[in-house]
Simulated scan of single mutants.
Amino acid sequence: MATVKICGVRTPETVRELRRLSVDHIGFVFAKSKRQVSAEEAGALIRELHDGVSGGESERPLAVGVFVDPSMEQLEAIMDKAPLDVIQLHGSESPELCAAVKQRIGVRVFKAVSLERESRDIPSAENIAGRLDRYRGAVDAILLDTHDPVYGGGSGTTFAWECIPPYQVWAREAGVQLLVAGGLTPDNVDNLVSSFGPDGVDVSSGVETEGTKDLDKIRKFVERVKRS
């Protein structure tokens, strides 16, 4: 069954609702974005996430911090105030930085790979290997997302899903998860999951109404992923 990540969360009310649903990851955006939160804000939301949980992370969604080209010093300073379970990197971060984050900070690392919205060229195994082989052992998951020229990801638009299978092959050989983001909504996510079977899906604007998280859309999104 695919995991679900709801990204761009900013309110304790949303955190409380996501705890009631079968959500696996809650994303807090530290990169430049209209959904950006400070370390202090994220810390308060993570405390809400942990509140009343005695059995550890298996009994709650994992807290994911989304960054674009952060320094190690920035990550360590944020971790002091907001104890993340996962760091998701959306920029041009090197394999060396990814490995250092895992070793020094002791969290899981998701690395985003941006795909062009208009391109329908299916990448070859050699092309993917040349792009990703250096990240073997340095990351826990690869996240496919639609390229955004300003923020790197979070564009709210889909890429050609036909590009997913060769990335899945690479991910399975490398022993990492393959997650998919980019333009997902309650109306299209069941088609993605049933047709391509990613290990997980990631949504932000697709479960919003006028820029605010819509709990009805979130419930529908989660239900349609888990039944696919």
Results as ranks from 00 to 15, higher is better:
Gly182Leu: 03
Glu173Ile: 09
Val101Phe: 05
Gly197Cys: 11
His90Val: 10
Ile142Leu: 15
Ala63Val: 13
Ser124Asn: 06
Lys34Asn: 07
Ser114Glu: 14
Asp202Ile: 06
Pro95Gln: 02
Thr185Trp: 13
Thr14Asn: 07
Val222Trp: 09
Ile218Gly: 01
Ile6Ser: 02
Val107Gly: 02
His90Ser: 07
Val66Asp: 00
Glu40Tyr: 08
Lys226Arg: 14
Ala82Leu: 08
Val222Asn: 02
Glu73Arg: 14
Ile46Tyr: 02
Thr209Gly: 10
Gln168Tyr: 04
Arg120Val: 09
Asp187Val: 04
Ala82Val: 11
Ser92Met: 13
Ala181Cys: 12
Lys217Ala: 14
Gln36Cys: 08
Val68Pro: 06
Ala129Trp: 09
Leu184Lys: 03
Lys32Cys: 00
Arg104Ser: 12
Val150Pro: 05
Ser119Gln: 06
Val53Cys: 07
Val53Gly: 00
Asp133Val: 03
Ala42Met: 08
Arg16Glu: 13
Trp170Tyr: 13
Gln88His: 09
Asp85Cys: 08
Thr11Asp: 11
Phe30Ser: 04
Ala77Met: 13
Val176Leu: 05
Ile87Gln: 01
Glu162Lys: 15
Gly156Val: 13
Gly52His: 07
Ser33Trp: 05
Gly206Ala: 10
Arg16His: 10
Gly56His: 01
Glu17Trp: 02
Asp80Leu: 13
Ala39Pro: 11
Gln177His: 13
Asp69Met: 05
Ser92Leu: 12
Arg134Ser: 15
Gly175Asp: 13
Ala125Gly: 14
Ala138Asp: 11
Asp202Tyr: 02
Leu45Tyr: 08
Arg19Leu: 13
Val4Gly: 03
Leu62Ser: 09
Ile87Gly: 00
Ala77Trp: 05
His25Glu: 14
Ala171Glu: 04
Ala138Glu: 10
Ile6Pro: 04
Lys34Arg: 15
Glu96Asp: 12
Leu45Val: 13
Arg35Leu: 10
Glu76Lys: 15
Arg172Trp: 09
Pro83Asn: 09
Asp121Lys: 12
Phe67Arg: 01
Val86His: 04
Val107Arg: 04
Cys7Gln: 10
Val176Gln: 10
Ala39Gly: 15
Leu21His: 05
Ala44Trp: 04
Met1Leu: 11
Arg16Trp: 01
Pro165Leu: 06
Thr212Phe: 11
Thr146Cys: 11
Lys220Cys: 04
Thr14Trp: 03
Val64Ser: 02
Arg131Val: 00
Gly137Ile: 03
Phe28Asn: 03
Phe28Ala: 04
Pro95Phe: 02
Arg35Ser: 04
Lys213Pro: 05
Asp80Phe: 12
Pro186Cys: 11
Lys5Phe: 08
Ile218Val: 15
Ala39Thr: 12
Lys213His: 09
Pro70Glu: 01
Arg136Ala: 08
Met72Tyr: 08
Thr146Gln: 07
Asp24Tyr: 02
Ser54Asp: 10
Arg10Gly: 02
Glu41Phe: 01
Pro166Lys: 10
Val207Cys: 02
Lys111Ile: 13
Gly106Arg: 08
Thr146Ala: 07
Ala141Ser: 09
Thr157Gln: 14
Ile26His: 00
Val176Asn: 07
Cys7Arg: 09
Lys220Val: 08
Val101Ser: 03
Gly156Asn: 14
Arg60Asn: 05
Pro186Gly: 08
Ile128Met: 10
Cys7Glu: 09
Asp199Gly: 08
Ser22Phe: 05
Ala138Phe: 07
Val64Arg: 00
Phe196Gln: 03
Leu62Asp: 01
